[in-house]
């Protein structure tokens, strides 16, 4: 199984879930969005997004639908399922706990 470069697998999942939470997006838009929000800090190799998307789809956390884009092409749009929303909350909570713990360690030493 492939590993996304520089990103822990679970983190990438969290980012994807978070990115499509407001509205359905296609793959390229997700990649762009992650890059934008992270102000180009998170250099995700764009290709590695797709195995992650398919894995999340198999887990039934996200679902996909082919729709027309504004330019008139067919693209695959991903959106959260109910299970995905629950998963997002869980992972977000986990993440903030972990990052605040790491912050604590980093700042006190």
């Amino acid at each position: 199984m492939g590993k996304p470069n520089d990103l822990v697998q679970g983190t990438l999942d969290l980012l994807i879930l978070k990115t499509i939470a407001p509205e359905p997006k296609h793959g390229w838009a997700i990649a762009k969005r992650i890059q934008q929000i992270s102000r180009d800090v998170l250099q995700v190799q764009q290709g590695s997004l797709y195995p992650a998307l398919h894995r999340l789809e198999q887990k039934a956390w996200i679902k996909a639908k082919w729709k027309e884009t504004e330019t008139g092409r067919q693209a695959k749009f991903y959106s959260l399922t109910a299970a995905g929303r629950a998963q997002l909350e869980k992972e977000a909570a986990n993440w903030s706990r972990l990052s605040s713990a790491i912050n604590l360690v980093v700042e006190t030493t």
Binding site: G2, Q45, G47, P51, L53, H54, E57
Partner: peptide, 18 residues
């Protein structure tokens, strides 16, 4: 270049189908 190895990506995606 920014996308990376497309063939490998496809293979990995297919892997997730199980």
């Amino acid at each position: 270049r920014v996308f990376g190895n497309a063939t490998l990506t496809k293979e990995q995606a297919r892997d997730t189908w199980g």
